[in-house]
Each structure stands twice: as C-alpha cells, then as structure tokens.
Design a protein around this nucleic acid. Structure first.
Lengths: 192, 192
DNA sequence: TTCATTCTTGACATCATCGTCAATGTTGAC
DNA sequence: GTCAACATTGACGATGATGTCAAGAATGAA
C-alpha cells in the first residue's frame, strides 16, 4: 500500500460520532467533521464518499457499544434488577455531556423522513435488537408468561425508553427521568 | 385600513401548519411556505418577520386543537376507557397522512438544541398541559391513589406517548402502535 | 378624485454547504 | 533511487436559503 492514509480511522470515527451525537446527522456538516477531526473536507470525501457513509460507520460503532451495555445491564441480577440497571444506564447515556447529547438513535429516528433507507435500517436494527435483549431478560422467568406476552412487553419497554429520550430533549432532568422510569417499572413489574 | 393584506391569515397559518407538520420546523423553508400558501416570500417576511414567528402561530393552533381532542378523549367514559380513547386518538393523529406526518410536538422537541427559547417553551407547555389533563382523568378515581401517585403516573403516560411517536418515525405501523398501547394500558391499568 | 398608507413583487447581496478537481506532496514497491 | 499509486490540499462553481429593499400596485379616507 502506497500513499498511506494520514489519520487514524478509528479515532476519526470516534470523533465523528461525538460530532453526530451533539449535532445530529442532519445538522452536522462536513466542515464540522473536518474541524473536529483535523482532517480536511477533501480528504474526508476522498476516504468515505460522503457524510452519510461516515455517519453509518459512527452509528455502527455506537450501536454495538450501546447494545452491549444494555445487555450487560439487563443481565445483572434478577429481571427486575436488570430492568432497573438498564434504565439507569440509558438515562445516564442520554443525559451525559454538557450540554447533554440526548439519545442518538432517537434523534436519528426523528430524521427518518429525510434520511436514506440505510439509515432507517440501522435505527430499526437497534430497536429490534434492543427489543430482543429485553424480551430475553424478562422472559427468563419461566412458566410465568407466554413468549408472546414477553415480546409484547419488551416492545412496550423499548417504546418507553424512546419516550424518555424525547422527555430529555424537552428539558426534563436526569432526576425526573429516573423518577418516571421507576414509576414505570413499578407499574409493570407485577408482570416481570 | 389601506393597502390591505391580500391573503386570509387563518388559512395561511393552517397551510403553514401542514408544511411544518410534514417537514418540521427546521427543514421547512420560507420557499416551501411561499409555494404552499401562494404568498411570496417577501410578503411573508413583511407580515410575520421570520419563519419562527409563523411556526409559533401554527404550533399554537395545533396545540389548542390537540389538547382539546386529548381532553375530550380522556373524558369519555371511565378513566380506563378514556385512556384507551386517548391513545387511539394520538395514534391516529401521528399516523394520518400519506406519508404519515408523525407527531409535530415530538419532532419539534428533538430539534430542541437548535431551537429558540420560545419554541422550547411551547413544547414544554404542551407536554405539561397534557400531563395535567391525564392526571385529572386518572385521578378521578377517588380515594384509590394519592394525588402524587396520579401525577407520577400521568407523566409516565405522557412519556409513553412520546415513545409511540418515535416508534412511528422508526417505521412501526398503526396496528403495531395500537398493540403496544393496549399492552401498556393493560400493564398499568391495575393502578387506574 | 386624490393621496397617503400599506402590501406586493422581484431582484439583490450574503452566506453556508456541497461535491469536484488539478496540483502537490508522500510513501512503499521494485 | 526511481516511480507509480495514493492521499492531501486549497480553490472552484453550483446550489439553495436567508433577509432586505426599492419600485410598483391597490385601496380606503378625505
């Protein structure tokens, strides 16, 4: 290989992820990415083609990390404790940073109408994988519920997490989100 | 009055609402508004100042209509039936149109980071008024729950509605949203 | 009828972003 | 050491959005 790339690709994608997380796919510009990474616009176009290609890589990295963390949290302790840990994790995830960055998946989902099929697929992929993780975790209580019930409830839980992400954007504090999550868990926990 | 305005303001705002609902505050341009209303850009600037001023008027119209519909749905029948009607109403609201327009409030909330304080206040206003409506509706069951409990649960319900709006954007069908809403209601209905 | 007031219109300057490209390095292969 | 292959750079033209403005048109008041 000659004419070797001058930058660290992993570091660049990580930096790009931070930019996208703070500004969103739509609002982040190639100039933003160039400024944050220290790599010129022309080089980015040469290396990746366009903004969306960079986003897809960054989003994939984010999704893996997020789903791994979700799986770990859900697997800690009994299903009820797992759920509590899981909600703690995602609330921290969306309220971290100053100002808080919110939830990347949710923000991206809301841009659905102006995003490509590729982007939409990634969002759906994260949500459906999350749903499966949750379904497994709450379905682990044997003989207390049908698989169909567990799956339906898992989707309700995923939906509620998306709601938390919106509430965060609307200005609700970490404490308020935690209180709602606790109330939610208590309300459905009879079924867990 | 001389040099009289050539267009019907109410009709213009209604048309603008449709544009904002389909494209979002951020994506809709003055050109979009001009094309949809048949009023030149220059006239719009002259009459309203800027895009956000038009949005605020349109959003206010939307909010009143939405909250009125929510209140009516919630007040129909006992609290449980009211909740079911309410969820039916908001799911229809966000899945109407081709393509579906989604939930304007949620979409606007996600633009929080790039919106003005005025816009953020409107979003918070809708959510908190909705929370109050729900709190009243489910708190109407006397002596079965403290007011604090009803308020917490009301916020959980509002949060869940926001989650439904995100799921709609992610591609879930009206039928799927209805199923989740039903499962959610059944899970919390022991408390209603 | 006249006129002052206001709205309307189309053009203008500005700005930010996009995607491309030719020129210019730089590096590993031979 | 030479050179082909690739990356980098800065500039370019195109596009679309913004906000402003001067000139023209329309209308109610006097």
């Amino acid at each position: 290989m000659v004419g070797v790339r001058q930058f660290d690709e992993d570091a660049l994608i990580a930096t790009a992820l931070d930019v996208f997380w703070r500004k969103g796919l739509h609002d982040a510009t190639m100039q933003d990415l160039a400024a944050a990474t220290g790599v010129q616009r022309g080089s980015l176009y040469n290396a990746y083609g366009d903004k969306e290609a960079i986003f897809l890589r960054a989003f994939d990295q984010y999704a893996e990390q997020f789903l791994h963390a979700a799986g770990s949290a859900l697997a800690s302790g009994d299903p009820a404790a797992g759920l509590r840990n899981f909600f703690d994790m995602i609330i921290v995830n969306m309220t971290e940073g100053a100002p808080a960055r919110g939830c990347l998946t949710t923000r991206t989902a809301l841009d659905a109408a102006i995003s490509s099929e590729d982007v939409r697929r990634r969002v759906q992929g994260v949500l459906s994988r999350l749903e499966q993780l949750i379904g497994k975790a709450i379905g682990a209580v044997p003989a207390r519920r049908s698989v169909a019930d567990a799956n339906r409830l898992a989707r309700v839980i995923v939906t509620f997490t998306r709601g938390l992400a919106v509430m965060e954007r609307a200005g609700y504090s970490r404490k308020q989100l935690r209180e709602s999550a606790t109330t939610f868990i208590d309300a459905v926990i009879g079924d867990v």
